[in-house]
């Protein structure tokens, strides 16, 4: 916890403190120049981060003809949602979307449950050889056998080219387990004690006391885990290369981006007869943009909820037991 020792107070506190502070007496010329430059820099960087998303978005909702001629630069023109409607004809996309949603839900649920239970168990000093299991878990954060042995291992277990490869290896997540463990250790032990004296077993204590009390941290790992699952692309690329029906959305997008010349073919093969009209209405660029938007939108939707968890989320990268 060494990193955050000073950061426990929230932004809100700091803002209140700033508000109570007496106003600066006078701004010097230097202050004004500094402020202008400072605001200018941050405005610029914010625009840099925001504009690409905006640019892609306005291109997907503008008339395809204008997009093709490169006339949509700063604002949308001749609004249309035909691109999003046309997406329903790209069969592969919906399969990938379903796979990604499924893995996000199932994978996150199992990961959160696993982290909660394992985190709780790891606080139990009396467990048989607890230290050994704990070390076994922690070492895996810093050491792995490498990409190829991992692939061969999953292959040997028969997990390659299956949906399960997205779920099972991700259930045990040492980082999250340590995070939950640290959190549970901060819950007053007396609560657990009294439940134990009342005759509750480990399971009862776990889901009647520990689970509800550690909801804040579980929400954090859930939301970051879900984003991780949604964004994951490597496992699909490496382990499920020969099972296109199991490609995740990101992998599908990657395939589309790389085979932009073949996109017309993809469209026509998935739509059968009406090649002409679709190829007309959807050029490759717009198709890429639209699929990108479909991939980004869910992230944008959960983003406002995620912001609440940023403060605890940075611990994901910082806490070491």
């Amino acid at each position: 916890m060494n990193i955050l020792s000073k950061g426990n107070r929230t932004m809100m506190d700091a803002e209140k403190r700033n508000a109570n502070k007496p106003m600066k007496i006078k701004l010097t010329a230097g202050d004004i120049v500094f402020n202008i430059l400072n605001y200018a820099f941050f405005t610029l960087f914010t625009l840099l981060c925001f504009f690409p998303f905006y640019y892609i978005f306005i291109n997907t909702i503008s008339s395809n003809d204008l997009v093709r001629r490169g006339l949509i630069t700063f604002w949308p023109q001749q609004l249309t949602i035909s691109n999003y409607v046309a997406m329903s004809d790209v069969n592969d996309l919906w399969g990938s979307l379903a796979i990604t949603i499924l893995r996000t839900i199932i994978g996150t649920a199992l990961m959160v449950f696993g982290s909660a239970l394992a985190g709780y168990l790891m606080t139990k000093q009396e467990m048989w050889h607890r230290k050994l299991w704990y070390r076994m878990l922690v070492i895996t954060m810093y050491f792995n056998a490498g990409l190829i042995p991992t692939y061969l291992n999953l292959n040997m277990l028969g997990l390659t080219n299956t949906f399960l490869v997205y779920i099972i290896p991700a259930i045990v997540s040492p980082y999250n387990i340590i995070l939950v463990k640290t959190y549970i250790e901060s819950i007053p032990g007396e609560i657990e004690e009294s439940a134990f004296i009342d005759g509750a077993g480990y399971w009862t204590i776990f889901y009647k006391i520990i689970w509800p009390l550690s909801k804040p941290i579980l929400a954090t790992i859930a939301i970051f885990g879900a984003v991780g699952h949604w964004n994951s692309f490597q496992d699909s690329l490496i382990y499920n290369a020969n099972a296109p029906e199991l490609y995740t959305l990101q992998h599908r997008l990657y395939v589309y981006l790389n085979s932009s010349s073949n996109l017309g073919a993809i469209m026509s093969s998935s739509t059968g007869g009406e090649i002409g009209s679709l190829a007309e209405s959807l050029n490759t660029k717009v198709l890429q943009y639209t699929i990108s938007m479909v991939t980004i939108i869910p992230i944008m939707l959960v983003y406002p909820f995620m912001q609440r968890y940023f403060e605890s989320g940075i611990m994901l990268g910082a806490v070491k037991g």
């Binding site: 168990l121 076994m136 190829i148 042995p149 061969l152 045990v172 480990y202």
Partner: peptide, 27 residues
């Protein structure tokens, strides 16, 4: 209690072993 806890932990130990240590066999 110590064995009960161990048995509850066992699935996680097994998963860790299978997915993080077993790959070393691939070396």
């Amino acid at each position: 209690g110590k064995y009960k806890l161990f048995l509850m932990m066992l699935p996680f130990v097994a998963l860790t072993f299978v997915f993080s240590y077993l790959p070393l066999y691939g070396w």
